[in-house]
Write a protein that binds this DNA or RNA. Structure first.
Lengths: 204, 204, 204, 204
DNA sequence: TATGAATGAGAATTCATTCAT
DNA sequence: GATGAATGAATTCTCATTCAT
């Protein structure tokens, strides 16, 4: 296979470093070293640090939003859509481990510094959830609920689950607070989905 | 009124700045300026930046853990304890707005850099939740559930809710995704509590 | 015994630190800590760092010059005077271990920064040596010799001998370059005296 | 002429400043200014102050040791070797004026802080002297003598002679203690050599 | 005299960015 | 496109000295 283009190699490495150390904590010298690229080359390909951050986040967030939305569109009922929304989102986050860390840091700043293109991708996900909940409510399947709270429950739970994987792997195996399989997201997303849908469903 | 001790004034201001900008993004010069203290005074009272961070987080996390644990101990049944755990934690977080932002940033790093003293406070909260769930399960009130997932749902939801308050206040009033009162945590914690307890309770 | 006066305690400790770390390398905070005196107290007793240095060096150099000169005056012949000059100076230096280190540092700067009062004491010693050599030459006992070179031989040899005591004590016992008893100055000053007097004496 | 490499320019200038002001007294800002190099360039080439010091001393000490050792090897008898050892060392020191000052400061600290690579060069010189003395003793030319004391006499005398050149040049011309030509090392090294060899030779 | 706190001026080092080839 | 070197503007931390009590 042809060698990875330099520009992409930089983005991949930068994504990891932004996830691990945040924007301010990521140092261009270290980035150059870690991706085996001359420091000046980074600037040849990416103008400056802020632009690189923007590029990295866009490349990271866009396919995740696409994947979730496409998956939801393959099914029909609000319950199925909600299930896909949660589980596919969880699965996709787990496969792109840097997404959760970066998103959490940005949320910690209230989203104020998140590049516009990345923010739009998050909004696409939220709009999709809103449609699911409204559709379910209008069909008298779901109780009314604030979509933002549901969104936060999904994001907050999954992101924490993923970013704490290394921490939990370092716990003793028999830790009583840590019963789930550390590295497998599916049981967690299953429980999260059940919790949310249980509380939304209008029981008869 | 007696003047606030310099050391405390520094911690208060540093806590806010660490919450807003993260550890790496907090600049000691700006901190000195914002708390109207000579730069050297910061070092007189707090050795270095890392120690200041440790001191600030300990001062922030300890009373929150204390408040939650004390509140839970005032009631008896697992359901009441869970309700207090969630709602008092939410209320306390809302009253200490910097806690959520700092915790989220630390969780984004997997907790790897969190000062030990602060981490211990988080573990006290998790242990308490674990006891509630186990007690409820042994009384056949609750289904078995992974306490870590519940912990993540509580933390993740509340933290996101709080850190996005400024973001949401900037949205148009009629935004359809943003129905909740922005600044009041209680409806959100009420819904969160119901969601969790609904899914935990063994129905008869 | 009554407690050592604070001012003196500071001078004693400062002398050691100036010897060990030089003027620039001596930090007032560390000095305060090492002599168990409040930092502000140092300034109460000694105006500033430069004055303290002056005071310390004067207190250190004066009695050494006095001792050497007095010892030389107790004997009559040039040879005896030279012997006393070298051996008593060596002995006195060995008893005031910080003198050699401080003098060497000052000489490394060409003496340019040596406080005037300390420099005068060194000149008293050099003048005394000059008188001995001139007296010996006028009595046709000594060949003519540059007093400054002899002075340097004495100072250079003894100072190096003393300042390297700790270094040499760390060498293995059987080091072939290090045959002399490490801590006893007398054999060294004996050899130094013989070397110098041998080369000065007019043989008949 | 090709421009001097920046790294070397920094070392040259740093060597002079370390000699004049010592390690602690040398300020990186001043160094940058004096060698007309950006401050950050110093760190680009030399990591930090301690490494720069190490690099400077190694570059200074190595050729001096080489020169002395090579010169000694060109002659055969112990007396000739001793003469070369002293005179070539003196001449080389005089041509590298910063060597003496730096060595004296390091000796004032007992050599404890001297970078390893520089210390090794000094040991090469001492070992060479030791061989000369042992060879002379085994041929019944020299009396036995402690090589360390002889080493100290040579180092101490020459270093003091060189570092005090500026001081002595500022004395009045007719100063009776200062008969030697200030700037010419040869008469001094001649007298030093005679003094030492006179006292070592076994007379018949 | 003694002391905890404060401070302005520095001093070492870092960092994002640019330049010359 | 790539790279070693350079640089100005920070940024963290230190230090001699002073202040208030």
């Amino acid at each position: 296979m042809a060698k990875l283009k330099t520009s992409q190699k930089i983005i991949d490495c930068a994504t990891r470093m932004f996830a691990e150390h945040g924007y301010a904590g990521t140092i261009m010298d270290e980035l150059a070293e870690q991706c085996s690229v001359n420091k000046a080359s980074i600037y040849y390909h990416h103008k400056d640090k802020a632009t690189l951050y923007d590029n990295a986040l866009t490349a990271l967030f866009t396919p995740i939003a696409n994947t979730v939305i496409e998956a939801v569109e393959t099914v029909d009922t609000p319950v199925e859509k909600l299930e896909h929304h949660i589980k596919i989102f969880a699965k996709t986050c787990a496969e792109n481990p840097y997404f959760s860390a970066i998103l959490m840091r940005e949320m910690a700043s209230g989203g104020a510094n998140m590049p516009a293109r990345a923010r739009e991708q998050m909004q696409r996900i939220l709009f999709m959830l809103n449609q699911i909940l409204q559709s379910g409510a209008s069909q008298h399947i779901f109780k009314p609920a604030d979509p933002l709270i549901i969104h936060f429950m999904i994001l907050g739970t999954i992101n924490l689950y993923i970013t704490t994987i290394p921490l939990r792997q370092s716990l003793p195996e028999n830790d009583e607070c840590n019963q789930l399989n550390n590295t497998d997201i599916e049981p967690a997303s299953e429980q999260l989905y059940k919790t949310i849908v249980d509380s939304l469903l209008i029981k008869q």
